[in-house]
Write a protein that binds this DNA or RNA. Sequence first.
RNA 1: UGGGUUAUGGUGUAAAGGUAGCACAACAGAUUUUGAUUCUGUUUGUCUAGGUUCGAAUCCUAGUAACCCAACCA
Length: 551
Amino acid sequence: MTEEKSLNFLEEIIEEDLRSGKYKTIVTRFPPEPNGYLHMGHATSICLNFGLTAKYGGYSNLRFDDTNPVTEETEYVDNIKADIKWLGFEWKNELYASDYFDTLYEYAIKLINKGLAYVDDSTSEEIALLKGTPTEPGKDSPYRNRSVQENLGLFERMKNGEFADGTHTLRAKIDMAHTNMLMRDPLLYRIKHAHHHRTGDKWCIYPMYDFAHGQSDSIEQITHSICTLEFVPHRELYDWLIEKLEIYPSHQYEFARRNLSYTVMSKRKLLQLVNEGYVNGWDDPRMPTISGMRRRGFTPASIRNFCDRIGIAKRENVTDFSVLEFFLREDLNHAAQRVMAVLDPVKLIITNYEDGKTEEFQSENGPDEASGTRTVPFSKELWIEREDFMEEAAKKWFRLAPGAMVRLKSAYIVRCDSYDKDADGNITAIHCTYLPESRSGNDTSGLKVKGTIHWVSVQHALSAEVRLYDRLFKVENPSSEEGDFKDYINPDSLQIVNAFVEPSLKNAGKDDRYQFLRKGYFCLDEDSTAGQLVFNRTVTLKDAWAKEAQK
RNA sequence: UGGGUUAUGGUGUAAAGGUAGCACAACAGAUUUUGAUUCUGUUUGUCUAGGUUCGAAUCCUAGUAACCCAACCA
């Protein structure tokens, strides 16, 4: 069986580079800025960068792009590393752009000596003004033609801390009339008297992204530097700097960032959700962050499979959330232990079952024979799901209704005889008779019932808090709607219920995955304690009845 | 007449002049002690207009639309 899988455009480039002998082996890097948490968009990049070197040989570095000390913190570094490991990837070297600050400083001096960089005393407003606009050329700064000696002296004084923040910058000397705004004498260094999470107070000048990223790539001899489409205009500058500096020629390639429907994926927006209390932190299970998805119960494999399947290209896109859910369910279907839990309980009383009697049934743990069985206790009074009973059976309804029969999973067939209602019209109890000869495993009743429902024995049940999560936004693309994206938050994205779960869940483990039969996939939340079980719903099961009911 | 990038079913992604394919979604059916899973089948697409060619998603010409670029952020 040779299944031919087509290549994406990056794989094509790499295969050509390998074939032509341009490279013997490839090196990529994942370059997060340690100023926030990783999200699903980063996962795409991680899978891509690490996946490429795994496929073609070579290795990937983890490099923190820590050139802005004001926003960056070590706490983020640790979380980012944990997230990448959890996703299942290993970097060859853990590196920091700040490791290269000395080299970068020398590069700057080289540029000054070549007459290709100058110190500008303009304020940021003045610089912006002289920059022009996309449709109008810029004008030269009055400081543009300083001598090499003067520039050298000023740059050194910048480094020595003789100037206040914002008073001087080092700029490349390219062309103020260039059609590419980034080539209009871009800033290379700025003054920031700030404490850096790694270099401390050694520096008060810090390189800009454009004077750090490509140079770091070059220093690490990255062969394929992969980034998102908004960096396309930077490539011209990326190449210019490498050429003028005469350093190892890394090459930049761009792909379109991945968007997911019903969520937002920018650090800025996610930060707002956290800061303004719409969610409970970066790892809130509704967040598209790696940590949030982990807490929600996503598996690393489901995320990796998703990234592989949706592919990579250069056009704008919004991937349907259902694709992610598909890979989640696919993985969980095999990984999850089956258990019974009733989320919206109503009491079912078996009138012809002996008072005080208890039986034990064996129920399968999973779809594969190998997953084995577990013991579930049964008695006269059970909790069942309120939605599994209808006073008047609908068309195609094959659950409980007056006169109707259902199978209690792994136990007996019961028939509904009557039910109790309170003054408000709420069902308070359902009375049934059971068929002793329909015992699961040796059913001699000869009856075939269409419906099977889950249950939990009242006297054996454990109570648990269950957090039911739904999509965070009501619309597919909150960012493209009128007004503020937060206006489209789904008010029902979290619903907390008190459920009854089968006693085997007493020993639920942190990494265990469960399928609450017929209800969805769940995992233990970190808020869970010995006295109070707390479960998160990862994702529901597909529900054919819900669709039928809508008709 | 700023520059750049991109256009293939509802969504994502293939097809390097030769049968428009795959996945998700949707729909129909079979199996089912989970209305799950599994299995079978069906619907839906090349931005527009010209041109080259026996033959065009692909090549040419002219349009159109969307996105990115004017942070001492990355």
